[in-house]
């Protein structure tokens, strides 16, 4: 997992933003998750086209955070979502 990695939601994953949070449904297991505002934003950025580096650029413009910390956090979160099978 690095800045060039391109990810998108798994085919059985659907999500919807509700009051800034993401309601994530995994259809195969009927599992439903609620994710934070930042996580919801990352899900919308994971479009299968833009690499993770582009997500970082976008988020850096939206949040007042240290760029290096943001990059580490986004990479870690993307890896967690991929390990959970939510992104692929």
């Amino acid at each position: 997992m690095n800045e060039d990695t391109v990810l998108k939601p798994a085919p059985d994953v659907r999500f919807r933003i509700v009051d800034g949070e993401a309601v994530v449904v995994r259809q195969r297991s009927s599992e439903v998750l609620v994710m934070s505002e930042v996580a919801a934003r990352i899900l919308t950025l994971a479009d299968g086209v833009r690499p993770i580096g582009a997500w970082v650029e976008t988020l850096a413009a939206e949040y007042e955070v240290d760029r290096a910390t943001l990059e580490q956090d986004v990479l870690r979160f993307a890896a967690e979502l991929a390990a959970e099978g939510i992104l692929e």
């Binding site: 659907r14 509700v18 009051d19 949070e21 309601v23 009927s30 599992e31």
Partner: peptide, 21 residues
């Protein structure tokens, strides 16, 4: 619970239809 957690809770507890794409 906020609206997202409320809806997620009910969705998770809805047999059959919640797994219908």
């Amino acid at each position: 619970l906020g609206r997202a957690e409320t809806a997620a809770c009910l969705l998770a507890c809805s047999p059959f239809v919640n797994a219908d794409p």
